[in-house]
Write a protein that binds this DNA or RNA. Structure first.
Lengths: 262, 262
DNA sequence: GCCCGGCATTAAACTATGTTAACGATCCGG
DNA sequence: CCGGATCGTTAACATAGTTTAATGCCGGGC
């Protein structure tokens, strides 16, 4: 299995891919985006980048590695709200409200671009089309969260796990970090458990079932997963990728209206 | 028990209360809001106002009654994402993306204001402060959804139910539809089950436990609930109301920037 | 006044998931 | 090369939650 597919693509490429889904971006936008993303930083694994309850003055873009967004109960139980992969923004709500309502933690070594809140505001003003593309990409998070909620509420452990794997496959493919049916999955079973609302042991059992049914192959050493029968997995999960890329671009009228402000 | 507390307050009053949390609104805004909300309509109970997968060209504001936002699995299982109560907006994401990713259904007779998408865009342009207040109020939905997700993933049936009741108490108080510790709860146990990710039978058992512990009183006939010991209920639920009203107003710089667009 | 449909309630049997505990593999630092 | 830490794996047992089914209450139509 090959690693580091990401290295074959320049930073920013997968971001454009994602943003371009919503809005056509021209050369000016690309240049502006390059400027915006000039301040990159490396983050060690297991480091809190945004902390629940604290203030946060920056918008972030993850360009390498994995992170999670989670909340804790007072007795230490943890629920992971969602995974953040390259091309995902985070920290906007925290910046707007001056307080984060969840914690973002790196799971691996990561690279993030930090965009000062004021700079983002400036982009919204001077390059509304680009700014809006970023906003859409963040608003879309809501759909992912909603589908995750459905999983926790109404899908069995098997269905839920299958659904998460299909979601990750689709999202990673969008930024070219997954092949047709395989990708690197740098998650321990404990992390999966916290995301799926299950115990570690049951995650283990569930993955075993998926393996035994020939649906997936999973090598814990290499942290690589092969989804042998994605269609069957999708059927088990009642997975439909629509919620991920809500194809239609946002009402162009809104863009025009905002651009033409006096 | 008195009913129809709402009737004692003019439409728009609780909305202002909510919007005012974020941004100070002056007389101009109030007048504008009045105009914006001029088109009201009545909706029967159990009517789909926004349908998953369909287009939707309006932003809605619920001013009377209850509604839910839900998604269905292909075998008919239903998960309720959240409750919509007077003062809540819905339909914005659907309008922006030209497609709704969940269904909004009335649970009781409702009154809604329908705001054509273009009008909202115009407000964003001409009264950015008001427009942004509406946007904040919608963004805040994300926090509620996240907390709901934590409930489904990591709270027991008892904790989860307690948490939902506390959330509703707090949200209804904000729009003066709840007293110090009581409110009308026009939900069947089936609806609660679909929201809590539980079976009907287990919801019944759980409510009984809460009743027997002297935490709540619930009369299914009158659909009225009294929360006798809100503090204990909050403790069981690990409930903290912070996520509901994220006190700090949004970065004023953003408002200024948008207002000063040329 | 009667019947019917929707909802709440309960019990009993069942199942999915959690808990505890043990063991094995791999990696890493000394 | 050893010893400890982390993670994955499994089995046996405990429990929370589901399913099925039966009963009762209430309100509405006729």
């Amino acid at each position: 299995m090959r690693r580091n597919r990401a290295a074959a693509f320049p930073i920013g490429d997968h971001v454009l891919r994602k943003l371009g889904i919503f809005v056509h971006l021209d050369a000016t936008h690309l240049a502006e985006l390059d400027r915006l993303l000039s301040e990159t930083m490396s983050v060690d694994s297991l480091h809190d980048i945004v902390t629940e309850g604290e203030s946060c003055k920056h918008l972030f873009l993850l360009t390498r590695g994995w992170a999670v967004r989670y909340k804790l109960l007072s007795d230490g139980r943890r629920q992971i709200l969602g995974f953040i992969i390259p091309g995902d923004f985070f920290g906007l709500r925290a910046t707007l409200f001056d307080v984060a309502d969840d914690t973002v933690q790196s799971l691996t070594d990561c690279t993030v671009c930090r965009i000062p809140g004021e700079d983002f505001v400036a982009v919204l003003r001077d390059h509304p089309r680009l700014g809006m593309a970023i906003v859409w990409s963040i608003v879309r998070e809501y759909s992912v969260l909603a589908e995750h909620l459905v999983s926790l509420g109404r899908r069995s452990a098997l269905e839920r796990t299958a659904h998460l794997l299909m979601e990750l496959l689709n999202r990673l493919q969008l930024v070219r970090l997954a092949g047709e049916r395989d990708f690197e999955l740098p998650l321990t079973q404990e992390i999966l458990a916290d995301a799926l609302g299950l115990s570690i042991v049951h995650v283990n059992r569930t993955l075993r079932r998926l393996r035994q049914q020939g649906l997936i192959r999973l090598d814990p050493q290499s942290r690589w997963i092969i989804i042998d029968r994605p269609d069957d997995l999708a059927e088990i999960a009642d997975f439909s990728p629509l919620y991920l890329d809500q194809g239609t671009p946002p009402a162009d009228s809104l863009l025009k209206a905002i651009r033409s402000q006096h």
